[in-house]
Each structure stands twice: as C-alpha cells, then as structure tokens.
Design a protein around this nucleic acid. Structure first.
Lengths: 207, 207
DNA sequence: TGTACATCAGTGAACGCGCGTTCACTGATGTAC
DNA sequence: TGTACATCAGTGAACGCGCGTTCACTGATGTAC
C-alpha cells in the first residue's frame, strides 16, 4: 500500500462521496438548478452546514459530478471506435454503450440532462470533456488505414459525429431501461443502422 | 374578420401569452424544474394566484411552451429535407437552421434544455413532437428517387439521424450566438460536413 | 335599448414550510517536542 | 511513549426570505329577457 490516508481525510472523502452519491440519486427526478443543498445533506444524514466543508454550492458539486461521470469514460470511448478487423465492430460498440448505460444509468442521465441544463459552469465542464472525447476519437480514427488522405478538419468532424451519436444512443438506452427487452433491442438496431450509415459515408468520403 | 374574441377571452389570452413569454425569458438562465410560479407572475405584473387561471403548474406551462416552440416548426423541417436539384441543398438547410436559431433563440434553448430535463410531462411532449418530425422527414425522404428500394425501417432510421443532427446543429448555433461571426461560420462548416457525410452514406447505402 | 343576473379573470391577505447562509461550538484527529 | 496544543469536519440554533396554495372577494364582461 503506497499511501494510507489519515483517518480524518478518509472520513472526509467518505462524506464527500456520500454527498455526490445522494445528489446523483436526487437528480434522477429533477435538474441540478433545482437541487437543494438541504435535500442532499438530509439524504446523507449530515447537518446542512457540513455541505460547505466540501462544496461551495450545488453548482460546484455538479462540476465534481461531471468529472466523476465522464472522467472514467475515456478508455471506453477509445475502445468503441478503435479500428478492428472484426465484422462485428459496430455491434460490439453498441453493446459497449448499452452496458455502460445499464451499469451507470444515473451518470448517463446526469450528463444528458445537464449538457444543455441551466447551470453554466456544469455545461462548460461537460463541453470540455466532450471536446476531449472528440480529440481522442479523432486520434483513434487517424490510426485507421481508412483515414489515409483525410484532412484534419474532416477527421474531427467525423469524431464529433461519433461522439454525438454515442450520446444519443446512450440516452435512448436510458429511456428504454425500464421498458421491455424488445424495446431495448429496437434501440440497438436503430443505433447500429445509424452507425453503419455513417461508416458507409466514411468509406466513400474521398474521391 | 371571421370571428372576434370577446373582450374577456381576448384579455385572458393576452395574459396567458404574457406568462408564456415571461417564463421563456426566465428559462434562459435556469431549468423548468426550478422555475417558480411567483417568479413568472412577478415578471408579468399579475398576482401569483392569477397563474392558476391559465395553468395547473409550471410543468403544465412547460408543455404549452413545447407546443409553441415546436408546433410551428413543421413546415421548416419539411423544407430542410425536401428533395431539390440544387447543389446548394445542404448549405441552404444549414442556413435555415441558423436563421431559425437567430429568430427564436429562447425556443431553441428551451427545447434543447428540457428534452432531457427534469420534468417528465415536458420530456414526453418533446419526444412526441420529435417523433412526428421524424415521421414527416421520412415522408419527404420517401419522395426522393434516391430512396427507391429502401426498407421502411431504414428510411425512419435516416429520418431520426437528420432530426437529431438538426437539433445538435441548432444547439451549436445557439452557443455561438454571442460569439464571433467566425465562430458561427465554423459551426456552419462543421454542420455542412456532417450532413454531407450522411448524404454520402445515404447515396451508397444499398448494394 | 335597458335591466337584472351570471360568469369568471384577476386580487390580496394569510398560512405553514423549507430554503441558503451565518456563527460560535465541539471533540476527534494530527503534530511538535 | 506521553503531553500539550493546533487543526478542522461536522453540529445545531438562528435569521430573514420567498415559496405554493387556500380562500373569499371584486368588478368588468357576458347573457337572457
């Protein structure tokens, strides 16, 4: 073990995480701009004033949630678009998205909701992370032999198209979470067709 | 003049519209789930209780705003995807979107924000209207000779892709509204490239 | 046209409630020696 | 290891404030005759 936190710091982090978790839960049924500090502390079981030991405001907490929701997503995004020989590439990508939504529904909902939400610093944080995703996707696409001869601008355009498409698909899976398996299959089919059409466009882009 | 409203009804509609307008203004900086009834009536200059003569709740007002924001958009959507011989088809479509955002920024912001927002009836109303848009776009696409031989499912898939792409483009124009003309041009360029790639995919979809 | 009554959009007072923020505090944990 | 002091995460009371909703009301507009 490289470094054990002091008892005080460990406890502080635990409370902080409890606040984040509680907020994420409460945000399933409302937007960040209506989330109350007292709601969050009540859900955790601490005094309202304890909130200020961790965050300046609920907007500040929202920015932390963006890091939590998107920070850990970079490896998956890369994997989704990494060039592979498999004919099942698109099917696999859609499965990855579906799996992520099933295992982190609240995070996905939060990002979809607050991307255009009423809290500016949170919108900005999401915008930055998505721009990073697009850059990473672009880097992966550039490795693909299919991208030979592509101008930088066109690669970035395609990367944004993929990132947006992933978000759209994720939010459709989210809506289908409480629906039937057939409905989820319909979403998967739609997503696959759309990705295939984009792939066809990509293949015939030049010349 | 076919039918003049009574004085009482005319005044009532005027107040109702003032409430809708005031709410739309207030929603530029927050989400519907945090919009207060008193905020709205204060902005209009009527008593809080007057609100109940027009809407059961702010959620109810939100649903009315969806109708206002999207109800009148059907002709434009059709026009955007209508088949034409012009080589400028895509450029023209992007211009139409940019123009709509410039003339109705608050409506566009409202839809982008509340599509995944915290108020279920409003999300549902937006979902329904967008599904109608997709059906209309599909009908336009079906008229195009290029769509010969396309399965129904594929046409609807492409229609959804176009509708989502329009919304993404609209929200990018919205963010660029307060930025420089160069930034807006960059958004237009990106949107055109993406629509072109989708068009290429469409052209080579079958066979 | 005039009158008597009905309707109903908007009023204003009142209510109980939860909000965000301040402040001085407590007591467990951390640190210096 | 033991002691004396510093730090600081979490407490609890208190504040002023705006909220949504109720209720009985007013007075202009509408309607029946």
């Amino acid at each position: 073990m490289s470094h054990t936190l002091g008892i005080r710091q460990a406890q502080k982090q635990k409370t902080r995480q409890a606040l984040l978790d509680a907020a994420l839960g409460l945000l399933e049924e409302q937007s960040l701009s209506s989330l109350g500090l007292r709601e969050v502390t009540r859900a955790v079981g601490v005094a309202p004033t304890a909130f200020y030991r961790h965050f300046r405001s609920t907007a500040d907490l929202g920015v932390a949630l963006v890091e939590e929701a998107l920070g850990s997503l970079h490896p998956m995004i890369r994997q989704t678009v990494a060039p592979t020989d498999s004919a099942q590439r698109i099917t696999r990508a859609v499965e990855l998205i579906a799996h992520h939504v099933e295992s982190h529904p609240a995070h996905v909902r939060f990002i979809a909701r607050e991307r255009h939400g009423g809290v500016q610093p949170v919108r900005e944080a999401i915008r930055e992370q998505l721009a990073r995703f697009a850059e990473e996707v672009k880097a992966e696409l550039a490795k693909d032999p299919e991208s030979a001869g592509w101008p930088d601008e066109d690669l970035l355009m395609l990367a944004h198209l993929y990132v947006d498409q992933m978000l759209i698909t994720a939010s459709l899976f989210l809506e289908a979470l409480e629906a039937t398996a057939e409905e989820r299959e319909r979403v998967a089919q739609l997503a696959e067709l759309q990705l295939r059409l984009i792939s066809v466009g990509r293949r015939h882009w030049l010349g």
